[in-house]
Design a protein around this nucleic acid. Structure first.
Length: 582
RNA sequence: CGGGGCGUGGCUCAGUCCGGUAGAGCGCUGCGUUCGGGACGCAGAGGUCCCCGGUUCAAAUCCGGGCGCCCCGACCA
């Protein structure tokens, strides 16, 4: 490709609305252009990088037995009604009606379609296991897109679906994906951290996310400083230690004016926040009576409630913070609340394990400016559910080994879910087993966002001059820069371009009539891993100068050896990626 | 959905407070001189000042409404 005719130019300055480095660089280098909030066009450089990533994904998925398919983007609503997700998922799922008034959705994911096809295509255990995948556009109307390509609304996703007889088969395909995802990261030049994660809208039991650890990440993660425990903060556990060895004391009502928050209360009473209890009110949506019910979560005052865990323990489909009126309706007083003496009909009280075993905590008295000393769960009030609902925190004890947990941030590049039979049962995807019995197919679901992966690679592989992409992802292997002043030099550059291309090398040829500074800076910005420079000076010295984007010193290569030298350098770069030097 | 910021040639922005009929740098076009890390001179092109309405002799500027984009938050009672 010639830079003189490349669709998409470089920009000296990043658009004012780009804050994240990868976003700024990908725009400045001419890889992407934004069309609307969270909606991007990929220019030739960006598209070629995506295709490189797609190639890695295809190779790794094929290697674990994947069969590529292409599933529809538009689905009839009935499919999603059958599994219930039509009702469970909010406006993140884009819906519309076709000209006949039939409800349709833009697919966010394809479990339904895969299960529906499986219901007719898979009849016998002899056909299993099966793994299908596709690389396809998804649309999710997120509340807010952010970080350039990090969180967008329309994006390319590799999604795969495993079909198995039983859980052992699922586990095998799940493990295969786990390994493949780490390998995909390596090949793209990224170290991915697998973390335990919430199953979210997918349902199922076990799930991992593959995180690129970075300060700009939107997910909070917990990682043990000693062992290999790591989890998304949403599901992170921690060791709460032993119950305080303390006899319950009689309950006592105290005047606590203007002490609505834990901080105010503990400073007014001169006690540690750990001596208090924190009440958090939610409104939960429940499956049975489709009415909202109050969910009362209680954690120790020095900790925070984890809404995902509260939701799970309460058995709710969704949670939102309760409004003051809703809290007052049951007789609780915001700022001075406790479960003691409130109307609990219809409400669910979820208590953190630590609170359940800690006597003598300070809770609200459910009247303004009063609290209760020495409350104890089980004596003064009962819990509907006791569970681990407090959020893990920096310095908490690891649930596996007891050492200190660290809080870090990451971007979710991929995820893997053990779905089980939820979708196959809903869509009648059954097979006949050896024993002649009809059984639901056991499903797994696995995703990787291509654009997000590219953004993470750009985030990781860059410097003050621009992108410095790994050879596996870069749109071209080498930038050929001609600083020709004379026709002879230009001809030599043209000749090199032809020979490199004939040699099967992907080359971006800067044939423009621009000043050396412009061309060299653009080559650095665009970030191809190798740069080959031809000029009067280099020819006089005996050839062309070859250098890596990440190094400052160039090597002089005789013209006749250039193709071999470039090829060798590409091979070296690929080998380094494979061995994890990247 | 709450809070904050922004919307002016392709890009980055000034001008808005205090109304008088649109500017700069970069980029682009032509000519010339330059030529190894974003060169210089001369000449030029390019703008519904986000949209609609209002006030006014006069609106990029003031008022009302809308749209779009970015950032933070959307559990901590």
């Amino acid at each position: 490709m010639r830079v003189s005719h490349l669709f998409g130019t470089t920009l000296r300055e990043a658009p004012g609305d780009a804050e994240v480095a990868s976003h700024q660089l990908l725009v400045r280098a001419g890889y992407v252009r934004q069309l609307a909030a969270g909606i991007f066009s990929y220019l030739p450089l960006g598209q070629r990088a995506l295709l490189k990533i797609a190639r890695i994904l295809r190779e790794e998925l094929d290697a674990i037995g994947g069969q590529e398919v292409s599933l529809p983007v538009v689905h009839p609503a009935e499919l999603w009604q059958a599994t219930g997700r039509w009702y469970e998922i909010d406006d993140t799922m884009a819906r519309f009606q076709d000209r006949r008034g039939r409800d349709m959705v833009l697919a966010m994911t394809h479990e339904e379609v895969v299960a529906q096809i499986a219901s007719t295509e898979v009849q016998s255990y002899r056909q299993l296991p099966i793994l299908v995948y596709q690389i396809q556009t998804k649309f999710r109307d997120e509340l807010r897109s952010r970080g350039g390509l990090i969180r967008v609304r329309e994006f390319l996703m590799k999604d795969s679906y495993s079909l198995d007889r039983d859980h052992e088969g699922l586990q095998r395909q799940y493990d295969a994906h786990y390994k493949a995802y780490l390998e995909i990261g390596h090949r793209a030049g990224l170290t991915l951290l697998p973390v335990l994660s919430d199953v979210g809208m997918m349902g199922g039991k076990v799930a991992h996310e593959f995180m690129y650890v970075t300060a700009i990440g939107e997910d909070s993660l917990v990682r043990c400083s000693a062992c290999d425990y790591s989890a998304n903060l949403e599901v992170a556990r921690f060791d709460r230690g032993d119950a305080p060895d303390e006899a319950p004391k009689p309950i006592e009502r105290v005047h606590t004016p203007a002490s609505k928050t834990i901080a105010e209360l503990s400073s007014f009473l001169g006690v540690e926040p750990a001596r208090t209890g924190k009440i958090v009110f939610f409104m939960g949506t429940f499956p049975d009576p489709s009415k909202e019910r109050l969910v009362v979560a209680i954690v120790r005052g020095d900790m925070d409630a984890n809404p995902i865990q509260v939701q799970r323990h309460a058995g709710a489909l969704a949670l939102r913070p309760a409004r003051d009126e809703e809290i007052e309706e049951v007789g609780a007083v915001p700022g001075f609340a406790s479960p003691i003496g409130i109307d609990r009909s219809g409400a669910v009280v979820v208590v953190d394990e630590l609170v359940a075993m800690s006597p003598n905590l300070i809770l609200g008295a459910n009247e303004p400016d009063y609290h209760l000393l020495n409350t104890s769960c089980g004596r003064d009030y009962e819990a509907d559910v006791v569970g681990e609902i407090a959020t893990a925190f920096e310095g908490a004890s690891c649930p596996e080994c007891g050492e200190t947990l660290q809080l870090i941030r990451g971007v979710e590049v991929g995820n893997i879910f053990q779905l089980g039979t939820k979708y196959s049962e809903a869509l009648a995807a059954y097979y006949t087993d050896e024993d002649g019995e009809e059984k639901p197919i056991v499903l797994g679901s696995y995703g990787i966002g291509l654009g997000r992966l590219l953004a993470c690679v750009a985030e990781e592989h860059r410097d003050e001059r621009g992108l410095a992409l790994p050879v596996s992802v870069a749109p071209f292997e080498v930038s050929l820069v001609s600083l020709a002043k004379s026709g002879e030099t230009a001809a030599a550059a043209e000749d090199l371009y032809e020979r490199l291309r004939a040699g099967g090398i992907q080359v971006l040829f800067d044939d423009r009539d621009a000043s050396p500074g412009v061309k060299l800076n653009d080559a650095d910005l665009q970030g191809m891993p190798l740069r080959l420079l031809v000029s009067e000076r280099s020819l006089k010295a005996g050839g062309a100068e070859l250098k890596r984007r990440t190094e400052s010193e160039a090597r002089l290569i005789p013209l006749e050896d250039v193709v071999d030298a470039v090829r060798a350098e590409i091979a070296a770069l690929e080998a380094e990626l494979a061995s994890g030097v990247a």
